[in-house]
Nucleic acid binder design. Structure first.
Length: 303
DNA sequence: AACCAGGTTATGC
DNA sequence: GCATAACATGGT
């Protein structure tokens, strides 16, 4: 028995653009992806609910593989946040159109949304994992962590992996994470961050009550979380459009290739650009990250 | 075999 | 406060 939810497609939305961005060149262990859909599982009331998102004419279709009707609204909210469906993109496109170097994006990436991950703990740990290492290795670490300390559930004969909970990760030792090729530093950061979440010291709901600045301060209070990581989390998990992971090498590479800054140390150039995208910083970052990747077709499926 | 990768912290002036 | 070093480990 499946529950099906249909959400009306907003203006300036492309499911294919979003789906492709979710996948990019990577192989996220938490997702099952094919040309037309993406599946994952989330915890709702202590129960894991697997679901699939696809598109159906003028709708975004969510299929929930459970009879659990209580989960439906939760899953719907999750997807609306995941694809940032509630936002009106028009003001952002108007700013893009004021920049000759960027205006092509309104056509080429038309309908791409701020893609993140509504699971804040996952997002934070992922951001810590991916600090200062290449993405190939980062995903390797993520997969090892999930395979060793996460879970999995059966999903139409395939298996959907589940991210380890904060409760599990807080009880790990540095040695156990080092055995998975995590550096000593990162192992400490991850265990500490997990403890803060497990204790309820930091949570998505608490962060949501704070201003952008307060969110960043709260996240930075964790050892191993700097400005880059904090901004990545607020932009990707709290849908905070002012999130701006300055110093991000991908961001700098993209701006260089668009000839919008003079080298990676060009702070003034950087500030000038983002001043003009006030309120849409995270969207510009997302679109610039999109620009780094290769053309969207053909898509490779799960490695 | 250097140099780099979706950084952060500690140290020194 | 701002530059620089130290950290840590695999990918290209």
């Amino acid at each position: 028995m499946k529950a099906i939810i249909k959400i009306k497609r907003p203006e300036l939305f492309s499911f294919q653009e979003c789906l492709w961005f979710i996948h990019r060149d990577y192989d996220d262990p938490l997702l099952l992806i094919d040309e037309t859909s993406v599946s994952r599982a989330i915890k709702v009331n202590d129960k894991y609910i697997p679901f699939t998102v696809s598109e159906d004419n003028e709708h975004i279709k969510i299929e929930i593989n459970q009879e659990d009707s209580e989960a439906a609204p939760y899953v719907q909210n999750f997807v609306e946040d995941w694809l940032d469906l509630k936002r009106d993109l028009l003001p952002f496109y108007e700013i893009l159109n004021q920049h000759p170097e960027l205006s092509y994006m309104t056509e080429e990436f038309k309908g791409l949304r701020l893609i993140g991950n509504p699971e804040t703990f996952e997002t934070l740990i992922w951001s810590i994992i991916s600090q200062q290492i290449n993405m190939t290795f980062a995903f390797k670490l993520k997969r090892a962590l999930i395979q060793t300390y996460g879970g999995s559930l059966d999903f139409d004969g395939k298996s959907l992996m589940l991210f380890p909970t904060a409760e599990v990760l807080q009880n790990l030792t540095v040695e156990k994470l080092q055995a998975l090729q995590f550096s000593k530093q990162k192992s400490i950061y991850i265990i500490n961050a997990a403890a803060a979440f497990a204790a309820g010291e930091i949570s998505k709901s608490k962060l949501l009550t704070l201003s952008s600045q307060e969110r960043i301060e709260k996240l930075i209070s964790l050892k191993g979380v700097g400005l880059w990581t904090a901004n990545a989390v607020i932009m990707q998990s709290l849908n905070d459009p002012t999130g701006l992971p300055l110093g991000d090498v991908g961001l700098l590479r993209a701006l260089e290739s668009h000839k919008m800054i003079n080298g990676r140390a060009d702070q003034d150039g950087l500030n000038a650009i983002f001043d003009r995208f006030n309120g849409w910083q995270a969207y510009l970052v997302n679109y610039l990250w999109r620009s780094l990747a290769k053309p969207a077709t053909p898509m490779t499926i799960n490695g």
